[in-house]
Design a protein around this nucleic acid. Structure first.
Length: 504
RNA sequence: UCCUCAAUAGCUCAGCCGGUUAGAGCAACUGACUGUUAAUCAGUAGGUCCCUGGUUCGAGUCCAGGUUGGGGAGCCA
């Protein structure tokens, strides 16, 4: 019997297997919050219902002990799953002594070291359930729309785009690199199958230490034959809508657990603004307003809010500290105030970083030089002005990959498209329409000083029945991070691999 | 690689202008409490103040270098 199915057995006696997520005690009564992976259920043990032995066993339980418990299923609206269990027998399966993760705030380094156990906590459970829903939704969208799932190789013989740093491995004595993108192979597969998508791990070796970078992440890369950049954008939007619809529909409980305000998710079911690079630059530099909002002004307002909040926190912390120091406060009240202070100190540390960063972002936006690619802060600046993802297309061809086609009406621009998520999350999708002409591709490869022989097979795709085609890459973890509104991508994947983090 | 912030009890953090024996809360442990949702009460125990060197009568506190971690730039999904 699983906790998620309890609603089918109201009033019946059932057996549950799981772990003690939490325990509270009164004299002669024990409340166990049992978790089994499918949900949470409060189990009540008294001598009356479970006998003296059962009560003693329940009293001796510690956090994360595994148990088998049987009893009567009773409806109780107050409970998270809507039901509780009045136990008449408790059996310990595996003991758990001094479980390291306590019921309080922890620092990130400690939690990352305990990632194998941290995954058991409610918030992480909810995030992983949402991740699962997103993965399922992506597969369903593409399968329902006639895409064929194919896999690109992970070992590659050359550094494809020549830009990012790759992990080098030894392939039977030859150097081989872990794939940074399956896209070129995707193009070959699309010429064979029409519409394909890949879903697999991707590796980037940049020593990036920011909240949106991982060394190993999962990427979904559709590729479509006979498809231009605008049809490509239609597919991106369709996929995003499908994902968000499913999460809103199937993960209400999980979204509530992580405290996700769903307003922006709901407004992200509308059509997404399609903005050219030129227009985006004007918005970033503050030369063009969006819905009456100005990028520079909104950053300045944000900075003012940060400063005001810092003063507020200092006053509040000082106030509570003084009250505690004054004595004659009940112990429970002290605990409550102390945990408030701890939480505010954490918030303060975050705000101080904002205080340092925002002025730099303002300067970077003001001084943005036309022709450059967007930096992380530029993406943040522009997306804060919209209540849904936006699609920025037609980029200066110099800053984009060699394989992108040009806008036929203005060849200064390459037909790349980036999807920027709202609420400051930035790029979650990068894609575009591919170059179809062999000669144009050859000159681009030379321009980027890439080894021509490595691209002979890729050029074959243009020699034998070249067609307009497009595709994109979706970063799964970035999608999960935005949908859950997480502070950092590392919480969006079970075991993150990033600069400085290889364990557990 | 560069910029920036940090490191004190198992955990989260105080520790002022350098001054005697380094503190609090949580967790743990002991005991009390029959409906709790990190908010009951009393008590016990718990320290290589990240490392190395320097300044000083005296360093958790100041200085230099290093290590580890947070955030950002670059690069990207």
């Amino acid at each position: 019997m699983y906790i998620q199915d309890l609603h089918t057995t109201e009033g019946q006696k059932v057996n549950l297997n799981g772990w003690v997520a939490n325990k509270r005690e009164g004299k002669g009564i024990v409340f166990i919050i049992l978790r089994d992976g499918t949900g949470y259920c409060q189990c009540i043990v008294t001598a009356e219902s479970a006998g003296e032995d059962g009560l003693a066993t329940a009293q001796s339980l510690s956090l994360e002990s595994s148990i088998t418990i049987s009893g009567l299923v009773v409806k109780d609206e107050k409970q998270i799953g809507g039901f509780e269990l009045h136990a008449n027998a408790v059996q310990v399966v595996g003991k758990s002594e001094n479980y390291p993760i306590a019921k309080k705030e922890h620092g990130i380094e400690f939690l990352m070291d305990q990632r194998h156990l941290w995954l058991r906590s409610t918030r992480q459970w909810a995030i992983m359930k949402i991740r699962n829903t997103i993965i399922y939704s992506i597969h369903k969208y593409f399968q329902d729309n006639g895409f064929i799932l194919m896999d690109s190789p992970i070992f590659t013989g050359n550094a494809v785009e020549g830009t990012s740093t790759l992990f080098e491995t030894d392939f039977y004595g030859e150097p081989a690199y872990l794939s940074q993108s399956g896209q070129l192979y995707g193009e070959a597969m699309a010429m064979a199958m029409g519409r394909i998508y890949t879903f697999g791990p991707t590796f980037r070796a940049e020593k990036s230490k920011t909240r949106r970078h991982l060394s190993e992440f999962w990427m979904i890369e559709p590729e479509m034959a006979f498809c231009d950049i605008f049809q490509n954008m239609d597919v991106i939007e369709g996929m995003m809508h499908a994902i968000i619809t499913d999460v809103l529909d199937k993960c209400q409980k999980e979204l509530e657990i992580i405290g996700r305000d769903t307003t922006t998710l709901k407004s992200s079911l509308n059509k997404y603004p399609r903005i050219t690079y030129d227009e985006a630059v004007r918005i970033i530099k503050g030369e063009q307003d969006v819905n009456g909002q100005n990028s520079i002004k909104s950053l300045e307002d944000e900075l003012a809010r940060v400063l005001a909040r810092l003063i507020e926190i200092d006053a509040d912390v000082a106030d509570r500290t003084a009250k505690i120091a004054a004595g004659n406060m009940k112990k429970g009240e002290i605990n409550f105030n102390q945990s408030k202070i701890d939480a505010m100190k954490q918030e303060r540390a975050d705000l101080e970083e904002d205080e340092r960063n925002i002025p730099q972002w303002i300067a970077s936006a003001r001084n943005f030089e036309y022709g450059n690619d967007f930096g992380g802060s530029d993406e943040t600046v522009i997306t804060r002005l919209f209540d849904s993802p936006i699609m920025v297309y037609d980029w200066p061809h110099e800053v984009k990959a060699f394989y992108l086609n040009r806008n036929p009406e203005d060849t200064r621009f390459a037909r790349g498209v980036d999807v920027l998520a709202p609420e400051g999350y930035g790029e979650i999708v990068g894609g575009g329409e591919r170059e179809t002409d062999e000669a144009a591709l050859v000159s681009k490869i030379n321009e980027h000083k890439l080894p021509m022989e490595a691209f002979e097979w890729y050029l074959d795709l243009r020699r034998y029945g070249s067609v307009p085609h497009s595709g994109f890459g979706l970063g799964l973890e970035r999608m999960v991070t935005w949908v859950c509104k997480l502070k950092h991508v590392r919480e969006s994947i079970p075991f993150p691999r990033m600069y400085g983090r290889l364990k557990p």
